[in-house]
């Protein structure tokens, strides 16, 4: 059997529902038979009651719209301009939208960069000529031609002069007319 002092130490927790079933039952049983402890319980309940009703009545006088306007004013006044701009962007490009927009954007960029793979000649005029990096004609005359209209690189090998003389009766030219 617990003494009254011990019971009064626990009344607060009992009222708060923080005791286990056994302890709770023991408090309840004691209160049923002890007037002094019951008075302590009632005092605690009165304090709670007064506080709650006082403050609840006050809070109920606070109307939402004026309160919300006060919050909005703080947001507008205290948020730096660049953060407000960022907020505006965030509101437009929400995470759900960004979740699709960003991969779509990456896909578009990649598609543009690889467009020339699908449309040959897209880089015409820029990179369509073959470029001759090195040439060794073993002493023979060689001409390099870049034909703009057809974007063609021509390497023309001229016949060896001795060979030309040896085949002098052949009528064909050995060199193009460019």
């Amino acid at each position: 059997m617990r003494d009254c002092e011990s019971i009064r130490e626990s009344i607060g927790r009992w009222l708060d529902g923080e005791l286990d079933t056994a302890e709770s039952e023991s408090i309840r049983a004691h209160l049923a038979s002890c007037e002094e402890c019951r008075k302590a319980q009632q005092q605690l309940e009165s304090i709670d009651q007064i506080l709650k009703t006082t403050l609840l009545a006050e809070a109920q006088q606070i109307e939402f719209l004026p309160f919300w306007r006060g919050v909005q004013v703080r947001i507008a006044q205290k948020t730096p301009w660049h953060e407000q701009a960022l907020e505006g962007l965030r509101a437009t490009f929400t995470l759900s939208r960004a979740a699709w927009l960003v991969p779509a954007g990456i896909a578009v960029v990649l598609a543009i960069l690889s467009l020339d793979s699908y449309i040959p000649g897209l880089r015409e005029g820029r990179n369509s000529f073959a470029s001759v990096e090195s040439i060794d004609a073993y002493g023979r005359n060689v001409a390099l031609l870049r034909e703009n209209e057809s974007k063609t690189t021509v390497i023309w090998l001229y016949e060896d002069q001795e060979e030309e003389n040896a085949t002098a009766d052949e009528p064909a030219k050995s060199a193009p007319a460019f």
Partner: peptide, 27 residues
Amino acid sequence: KPVIDTTVKIPNKGNFILGGPPHDGGV
């Protein structure tokens, strides 16, 4: 016998022309 050695960079799927060796009355 080597007649000509050359290194050419061509666009993928592109070409270049190497001409001049005589053959059969033409080149």
